[in-house]
Design a protein around this nucleic acid. Structure first.
Length: 563
RNA sequence: UGGGGCGUCGUCAAGCGGUAAGACACAGGAUUUUGGUUCCUGCAUUCGGAGGUUCGAAUCCUCCCGCCCCAGCCA
């Protein structure tokens, strides 16, 4: 964790912990946990939970466990447990020796189920899934008791043992908690806590053919680990009654407090596992690590630094109201971090050739350019300047509007860290009228970029020397969706309808200053006046550099143009 | 229409009976060899609505309105 991390802001969970600490509620350190199900990749919404759980533990001298909630072998797999660990680690958190799996507790959880049966608080139900649904009633009508509800303890023990022994086919029986079929909270209408599922588990293999349900396994896993504060999202609020019921019914020593908070939503993005899978599987994006995806692997490849994500998670706060955070805040956090951490470098994305007519044919001079304007510690490099250069095509206009103060016929501008140049004439394609190259003159007195006579120039342009520049592909990313609320259409229009067709633009004729030839995969730079970019970790290689645009610089001129 | 939650600036979000923090966004201005950064300034007489209690209410009470979650042998 770095010093740039945001200082903690007030939130209700922090207050609960402070109160608990002051009341000496625990005779030990506080303990939280991040409990992902290994059935998909993590996204920035999970980052909020990870930062919350690990952050709170760190702040109050406690610890946070990483626990895989792997109770459903038919949807989970090892690939996900690995990617999840990689992502949590990348975010900057360390679970040390506290890596756990709910599956590690299967034997204990089974014993607890037996205890429940023996206390007359659970029974084996032989209704079909469909029948159970019918017996459950509706939101407004109570359910009715299963005909199996009054089986004897002996009968239940016999059946449950045989369930474990594999004597029944999948779905034949289910173990249910005996609570209240008339409860106004549907979760409490004798919920299933164990089902028969003949599926090979990624950790326990074929040892089990019955698996505990979330509501049974989660609270017990928390209890077994000694969790003090079990933080989860709002949709589990109704389940808290069951969480507490199970732990009370069993009379366990450790009864953690479940606390719910609102999950993160982001504008111009879609954060549900189901929708992200849809994007990946139908090829709308190139896999989970596509830089346009809000997955942790996507934003990592995009170049977002982990510090920026942590900062973002602190700034958005933690509360119970449903909310959608503006993507602009995330981008702000990314720029804030990159602004100070990143070396400045020059790259021309859409090259326009310019010839300096009064510059000697074969001359090259090397001009010193600092890597960071406000941090000399980052050092400098020398840039080659020669007769033929490239500048950004957008930096020239034949017929400039009022507020355009870059290069135009007859106008003088500065080339960053180099010279003042003046546009003398342009060469156009006679057929298309397209501008092919510019002819300029330079003022040798302005070497380095300052004019001895004090004359001012309105713009400074980035540039590269044509003979020295190296080529690269640059990928420009934009929001994946065209509307801030892709799944908010009143008429129910599918979110995929709003995919931004311009969310990815590949530029293949980019010219970069020679220094970049050695750029390592993953390294981040600011391309002056353009934005922050990083070397792609998948497609880039020494002979064919590929850069991803992480985020643009704020752009006053772009704003003016929009008006 | 049952139960559980939530409603404070465009977006997040503090506030917990003493008279509306902060951030992002937005709008001006200063500085600037990045139209970047930095720095100033502005931006809720009002807290979903209506009543009530109180010297005093976003905070307490009542009623109303709106939004979210729950009827998986998913988590």
């Amino acid at each position: 964790m770095t010093s740039t991390d945001q200082s903690p802001s007030a939130n209700f969970i922090r207050y609960i912990i402070i109160d608990d600490l002051q009341a000496h509620k625990y005779d030990r350190q506080i303990m939280t946990r991040f409990p992902p199900e290994p059935n998909g990749y993590l996204h920035i919404g999970h980052a909020k939970s990870i930062c919350l759980n690990f952050g709170l533990a760190a702040e109050f001298a406690g610890v946070c466990n990483l626990r895989f909630d792997d109770t459903n072998p038919s949807r989970e797999n090892i690939e996900y447990v690995e990617s999840i660990q990689e992502d949590v680690r990348w975010l900057g958190f360390d679970w040390e020796n506290r890596l756990h799996y709910a599956s590690d507790y299967f034997e204990q959880i089974y014993d607890y189920a037996v205890q429940l049966i023996q206390k007359g608080k659970a029974y084996v139900c032989s209704l079909s899934a469909d029948e159970i649904r019918q017996y459950r009633g509706t939101l407004t009508e109570p359910g009715k008791d299963s005909p199996c509800r009054n089986r004897t303890v002996e009968e239940n023990m016999d059946l449950f043992t045989r369930m474990r022994n594999g004597e029944f086919p999948d779905g034949a029986h289910v173990l249910r908690a005996k609570i209240d079929m008339a409860s106004s909270n549907v979760v409490m209408r004798d919920p299933a806590i164990y089902r028969i599922r003949r599926a090979s588990h990624h950790r326990t293999g074929d040892k089990w053919c019955i698996y505990p349900m979330y509501d049974f396994a989660h609270c017990l896993s928390d209890s077994i680990e000694g969790i003090t504060h079990s933080i989860c999202t709002l949709e589990f609020e109704n389940n808290r009654a069951l969480y507490d019921w199970v732990l009370d019914a069993l009379g366990v020593a450790c009864h953690p407090q479940q606390i719910e908070f609102a999950r993160l939503n982001l504008t111009y993005a879609v954060l549900s596992k189901r929708k992200m899978i849809e994007l990946v599987e139908n090829g709308y994006v190139n896999g989970w690590s596509d830089p346009r995806m809000p997955s942790i692997s996507g934003i990592r490849r995009r170049g977002y630094p982990p510090e920026a994500i942590r900062n973002f998670c602190e700034r958005i706060g933690v509360a119970k109201r449903d909310s959608t955070v503006d993507m602009a805040l995330l981008e702000h956090c990314v720029r804030e971090n990159l602004n100070e951490s990143t070396p400045r470098v020059m790259a021309v994305l859409n090259p326009l050739r310019i010839v300096i007519d009064n510059y000697p044919e074969d001359q090259v001079e090397w001009l010193e350019a600092p890597y960071h304007p406000d941090n000399q510690q980052m050092g400098s490099r020398n840039l080659p300047f020669s007769r033929v250069l490239y500048i950004e095509a957008d930096d020239f206009m034949e017929d400039p509007p009022k507020k355009f103060y870059r290069l135009a016929p007859g106008r003088e501008v500065r080339l960053r860290y180099a010279f003042y140049i003046k546009c003398e004439r342009m060469i156009k394609d006679e057929q298309t009228g397209e501008i092919q190259e510019l002819h300029c003159t330079y003022d040798p007195e302005t070497r380095g970029g300052g004019a001895p006579d004090g004359r001012k120039v309105k713009a400074t342009l980035h540039w590269v020397s044509a003979d020295h520049a190296i080529g690269a592909e640059v990928r420009l990313y934009d929001h994946l969706f065209t509307r801030p609320d892709p799944d908010g259409a009143k008429d129910g229009t599918d979110f995929k309808t709003f995919i931004n067709p311009d969310s990815l633009k590949k530029l293949t004729a980019c010219r970069l200053e020679p220094e970049l030839a050695n750029a390592a995969p993953g390294s981040r730079y600011q391309f002056e006046r353009l934005g922050y970019f990083c070397v792609d970790t998948v497609d880039s290689c020494e002979t064919a550099l590929v850069f991803n645009r992480t985020v643009t610089l704020k752009d006053e001129w772009a704003k003016i143009q929009k008006k």
